[in-house]
Structure formats: structure tokens, C-alpha cells
Amino acid sequence: MSVKVQADDFDLAAELAAMRAGNHNIGAVASFVGLVRDMADLGDGGRDQVTAMTLEHYPGMTEKMLARIDAEAQARWPLEASLIIHRHGRLQAGEQIVLVACASPHRTAALEACHFLIDWLKTEAPFWKLEQTPDGDGHWVAARDSDTAATEKWR
């Protein structure tokens, strides 16, 4: 029920505490945090070191798509609360990129909705990653068929 697109980092504990504050009907909170890895898959089976990445997005459409994905989760599962935070801009290896959290009376809905949100977000929200490697220019990360397959299983 809350979507934030921001350059700033987030505090997982503070965000989860705020999400469930005052609602004692919540018996389960599931969360997922995505991080910048220091190794990139090059697509040809090779790997390269990543020093930083820049996340570009489509302001306006991003918030609209995230709100729509969030509403879809609300429609499918009995959620008491949900939260999506996605960062943009330049991020260093090890930094947090994305937080998805769902709260429900029971664990199954919270866990499933959280899994659904991160899978859908990856193929529907307009973000693009530019990975910086030590040799210079950086390269745009290609979409993966495995991500599309992960989304398809929820349809």
C-alpha cells in the first residue's frame, strides 16, 4: 500500500516497524532485500567485477507500474500492509537496491505476496542497470529469460 522510488538508502528495521505499527491483526511479515553484487554475469558464461552501478528509471511510469503491481498483490492475497522501495542513481557494490515487504495475519499470504511482488517488479517496472567495471565504460545489463519465466508462473 506504499510505494517509494528514491535515491536514498533505506533502513530495513525502521521500514518494517513503521509498516506494522499499530496493526495487531498482522501475524506475519515477509520481506525481500535486493543488493548490488560485485560480480556481473556477462551472458556468455563469463563474469566480470562490478565496482558500481547506475540505476536509471522512467519517472512517473515507474511509480505508476509499482502501484499497479502492489494493487495486484492486494487483490490476490489478504494483506494488512505492503511496501515497495526501489532506489535509483549510482550505487556501490554491497548497497541495497530494493525492498519488498508484505504483512498479513498468516505467513502463507505474506511469503507468497512478497515473492510475487519481486518477480513482477523485475519484468514490469521500468528500471535499467548500467554496470561499471574496472576497465571503464560500463555496460547496460540485458534482461534475462529466467526473470520473464519467473513472472509468467504467477499469471
Binding site: 528509471h57 537496491i97 523485475k122 517496472a125 528500471f127
Partner: peptide, 11 residues
């Protein structure tokens, strides 16, 4: 009208 590559957000 916007043109862009397939998206690559998330982790």
C-alpha cells in the same frame, strides 16, 4: 512515447 530496452530492476 517512450522507447527503452527490456527492464532490469530488482536485485
Amino acid at each position: 512515447v517512450a522507447f527503452f530496452p527490456p527492464v532490469t530492476g530488482g536485485d
